[in-house]
Design a protein around this nucleic acid. Structure first.
Lengths: 141, 141
DNA sequence: AAAAGTACTTGCAAAATACAAGTTGACCGG
DNA sequence: CCGGTCAACTTGTATTTTGCAAGTACTTTT
């Protein structure tokens, strides 16, 4: 569960996130967990970018191994697992919001709702609290 | 120079940055330009992570194609090119600082100086101004 | 004029990814 | 209580990307 830069290419903080998230798919799983309310394997597969199933399985395993996500049996459905962000995973929120702002600025075709990017600009702390609250609610349900 | 999500997998802002930076190397080049004062091809090759020369060439081309970096002849050395961040590239700074904070928190072996992460916590705007100023100075030299 | 520096390009083996199909254990309707 | 469907993967293979070593062309230094 604990993970540090011991076996990484360097101890640089930028490199450290790349060792876990440096590919085209991993951060999309985080996005789905953080903003889309997804928690089942099958839900991640449905995302618009169409991750393939072997890649998804490998990424979920890696995220769990690095302490970013958790995996638990769904008490209501024995054949399902509930994936969720750990505290370490939730702590990615500021990065995710800054990424959203950058893309909203430089992608003329972005699908970020203007209300959302304006809310981040006006009150980033408030948006963070709202998102965090939504994650807690989901877990308790 | 203009780039948007037209030919991307989706119009999601998270995916948009992945289309340009979603690999193990690209963001290290940005780091070297932003924080390490590097500007020559050979300097990027020297970084601790040891990017290979063909990958570096391809990434610099992509960054330039996406409007994140610029490339100009060095007036003093005809065999050298100066690489620099554009405004779009400099605008990645908030993301880079949040990444630094996250890694400094969760990597027990991080090489981030405590003075730096504390400065970001205490006065992020101030740190941003300092870094931005250093980038402007470099360009004018 | 020869050697070294700078920014690449090329070739090839190894690793990662994409796509399709198969497996295993619930769950559900009749 | 049996067959079909659902859910979460695993396996196999073709394609793409990466990693490493070597080579090229132009400049600068000695």
């Amino acid at each position: 569960m604990e993970h540090n830069s011991e076996n990484c290419r360097s101890n640089c903080p930028i490199n450290f996130v790349l060792e876990t998230f440096g590919d085209k798919w991993t951060l999309l799983v985080v996005r789905d967990l953080m903003f889309k309310g997804k928690k089942y394997y099958g839900e991640f597969l449905e995302s618009h970018e169409k991750i393939s199933t072997n890649i998804l399985a490998e990424r979920l395993q890696r995220l769990e191994a690095h302490g970013v996500t958790s995996k638990q049996k769904d008490p209501d459905h024995k054949s399902k697992f509930i994936y969720a962000l750990t505290e370490k995973g939730k702590a990615l929120l500021p990065i995710m919001l800054e990424i959203t702002q950058w893309s909203s600025t430089y992608d003329s075709l972005t699908n970020t709702p203007k209300t959302f990017s304006e809310a981040i600009s006006a009150d980033k702390e408030g948006v963070m609290k709202t998102v965090m609250a939504s994650l807690d609610t989901k877990n308790k349900k």
